[in-house]
Amino acid sequence: MRTLPPMSTLRAFEATARTGSITRAAEELCRTHGAVSRQLRLLQEHAGTTLFEKDGTGVRLNERGQGMYDVVRAVFDQLEQSYSRLQDQARGPSLHVACSATFAMRWLVPNMVDFYRLRPDIRIRLSMTSAREMRTEGADVVIAWDLSAYPEPDRQRALHLAPVAFGPVCAPSYAASVRSGVRIAHDFTSSAWDQWEALSGKRIAPARELTFPHTHLCIEAALGGVGVALIEQRLIRRELEDGQLIAPYGFARFSNGLMAVPAARELPKDAKVFVGWLRDKLAEYEPGM
């Protein structure tokens, strides 16, 4: 027989510890403030020790409570992931696709309606991630252009989807400052500028460099006139057409292009359909030079 407190007390504890507020925990759990307080009191009586202390108008974990929360949070996370997978299995075939947040927001999600018209029976589970997602979260396919940080077996399985073309872009008002102004770089693809300079034969020597962890932040910085950013052409097609961004040196095609990295050498049937659709859809807009 397991010696565990009632599940309702653990739910109240986890929500209160995570939000730092009994009131917010009550709202999240659709309970009253008094009901959550009673659950916390019951848990502490069951454990024989206090787990919280007052913190202004809220509460915070004491040392024993923090140790308990570390365990409960990990267990709840595992339960949530397992239950989500169970629901996915019950609903039928699905495909877990991982890609960068910017590619998802600016290209994949806006085009998904076309895929669902073609195959309404295949559900796409989408996550924003990198190579680690495939190993730790079970992604079926990872979409990326820079595979330098991927293990060799992953790179060998990679399937070419489409060419990519990168170019320095900035707001029209910033054009005169491009050569010696602020260069905007991505934290995790820092070699992109070096690749562009080698391919284009041009060089931008910035007075300083700013880095951001996501491409969409680099794009927003360029739109705001902060500096010049190196961006893949498809991701800013609308801004280029509208004249919000200009590409004073044009675009250079990178060697590998956009790739699909499957989790296994043999692609599942649904993944083959999705990869084929990606190739066809990406080919509708061929990046220029």
Rank of each mutant, 00 (worst) to 15 (best):
residue 195 Q to W: 14
residue 195 Q to C: 13
residue 195 Q to D: 13
residue 196 W to V: 02
residue 196 W to L: 07
residue 196 W to E: 00
residue 197 E to R: 11
residue 197 E to G: 03
residue 197 E to V: 06
residue 198 A to P: 04
residue 199 L to T: 13
residue 199 L to R: 15
residue 199 L to N: 10
residue 200 S to N: 08
residue 200 S to Y: 01
residue 200 S to T: 05
residue 201 G to M: 09
residue 201 G to A: 08
residue 201 G to R: 07
residue 201 G to W: 05
residue 202 K to F: 12
residue 202 K to V: 08
residue 202 K to P: 00
residue 202 K to R: 14
residue 203 R to V: 13
residue 204 I to L: 15
residue 204 I to M: 11
residue 204 I to Q: 04
residue 205 A to L: 13
residue 205 A to F: 06
residue 205 A to M: 10
residue 206 P to F: 07
residue 208 R to S: 13
residue 208 R to W: 07
residue 208 R to M: 12
residue 209 E to A: 15
residue 209 E to R: 15
residue 210 L to G: 01
residue 210 L to M: 14
residue 210 L to V: 10
residue 211 T to W: 04
residue 211 T to Q: 13
residue 212 F to E: 06
residue 212 F to N: 03
residue 212 F to A: 14
residue 212 F to Q: 11
residue 213 P to Q: 10
residue 214 H to G: 01
residue 215 T to H: 15
residue 215 T to D: 14
residue 215 T to L: 12
residue 215 T to K: 04
residue 215 T to R: 03
residue 216 H to Y: 13
residue 216 H to P: 03
residue 216 H to T: 04
residue 217 L to M: 13
residue 217 L to Y: 06
residue 218 C to T: 03
residue 218 C to N: 13
residue 218 C to H: 00
residue 218 C to G: 14
residue 219 I to F: 04
residue 220 E to D: 15
residue 221 A to D: 08
residue 221 A to E: 11
residue 222 A to G: 06
residue 223 L to S: 07
residue 223 L to H: 02
residue 224 G to H: 08
residue 224 G to W: 02
residue 224 G to L: 05
residue 225 G to I: 06
residue 225 G to V: 05
residue 225 G to M: 03
residue 225 G to L: 02
residue 226 V to M: 12
residue 227 G to E: 05
residue 227 G to V: 04
residue 228 V to E: 00
residue 228 V to Q: 01
residue 229 A to E: 02
residue 230 L to C: 09
residue 230 L to H: 08
residue 230 L to V: 09
residue 230 L to K: 01
residue 231 I to W: 00
residue 231 I to H: 00
residue 232 E to K: 01
residue 233 Q to V: 05
residue 234 R to S: 02
residue 234 R to T: 06
residue 235 L to Q: 09
residue 235 L to A: 04
residue 235 L to Y: 01
residue 235 L to W: 05
residue 236 I to E: 03
residue 236 I to M: 07
residue 236 I to Y: 01
residue 236 I to C: 05
residue 237 R to D: 14
residue 237 R to Q: 14
residue 238 R to N: 09
residue 238 R to T: 12
residue 238 R to Q: 14
residue 239 E to C: 04
residue 239 E to P: 04
residue 240 L to N: 02
residue 240 L to H: 05
residue 240 L to W: 03
residue 241 E to H: 07
residue 241 E to N: 06
residue 241 E to M: 09
residue 241 E to V: 08
residue 242 D to W: 00
residue 242 D to Y: 00
residue 242 D to Q: 12
residue 243 G to V: 09
